[in-house]
Design a protein around this nucleic acid. Sequence first.
DNA 1: TTGCGTGCAAAGGTTTTGCATGGCA
DNA 2: TGCCATGCAAAACCTTTGCACGCAA
Lengths: 135, 135
Amino acid sequence: MKNEYKTKSRNAIFEYLKENRDRRFTARDIMDTFSDQGEEVDKSTIYRNLEKLCKEGRLISYKDKDVNGTCYQYSEDNKECNCHIHAKCSVCGKIYHLDNKLFENVEKDLLDKYGIDIDYGKTVIAGKCNNCRKS
Amino acid sequence: MKNEYKTKSRNAIFEYLKENRDRRFTARDIMDTFSDQGEEVDKSTIYRNLEKLCKEGRLISYKDKDVNGTCYQYSEDNKECNCHIHAKCSVCGKIYHLDNKLFENVEKDLLDKYGIDIDYGKTVIAGKCNNCRKS
DNA sequence: TTGCGTGCAAAGGTTTTGCATGGCA
DNA sequence: TGCCATGCAAAACCTTTGCACGCAA
């Protein structure tokens, strides 16, 4: 384990993450929010911290055709996001962490019939969540 | 229907698409290939043509965390890619068109347990294909 | 003091846009 | 001729990188 310092910028980023848990956001979203709040954190600092968190598995990152730049999402309770499948609502972008048991059969079939070894950490199911279906 | 002219550049792009069906590629891939072949097509022309083809539904586009820029894939025989799940090899990028039957149970579970209505056309399973597992 | 983190500036890559020109039908 | 398409250059974005300095432990 590496040493990690607590700094003003890092704290600000964590604040943002906590206030935006279970929502996707981009580096730009953070910059804009900070800018609005008069908080000053350099963009390179933001990118470096986000990258670090991703490597540690505390943050998910993905790209979306309809969003400019990389999308991130904070996993509140430090779920090991490299080990389970996610579902993403195509409308609001909310991410769900799925139970791997759902895919036990699919995993087997994929390997048997297509020769594909599914990567749980990278797979994203697209769909529409309850809320967005109503509206 | 709009009028569409046949031009040298457009033909070159179509040639590329046909030679690379069922493989993902980026705008850069096209530029590099053309460059190698001594073919000269401006990048803005490439982007404009790709965008046009996407709008017409003749090309799929998506973003991949591990690939720089937008990925495209030409669907040779215009498969109805909006209606089935795809699997993508994280290594070589090859796309597989999956049988929906594999996901019948998952579909039900997702709705029951998470309230998510899966979108078959947008879902992409990540994994490693047979070939890439060997190497 | 040590070494991790930050800010700044610059650069790299992708994609878009405006405008004049070229070329298909 | 009338439009669509292209090339070129510039600009807009996002993201990365090098370097010196700041600061937590």
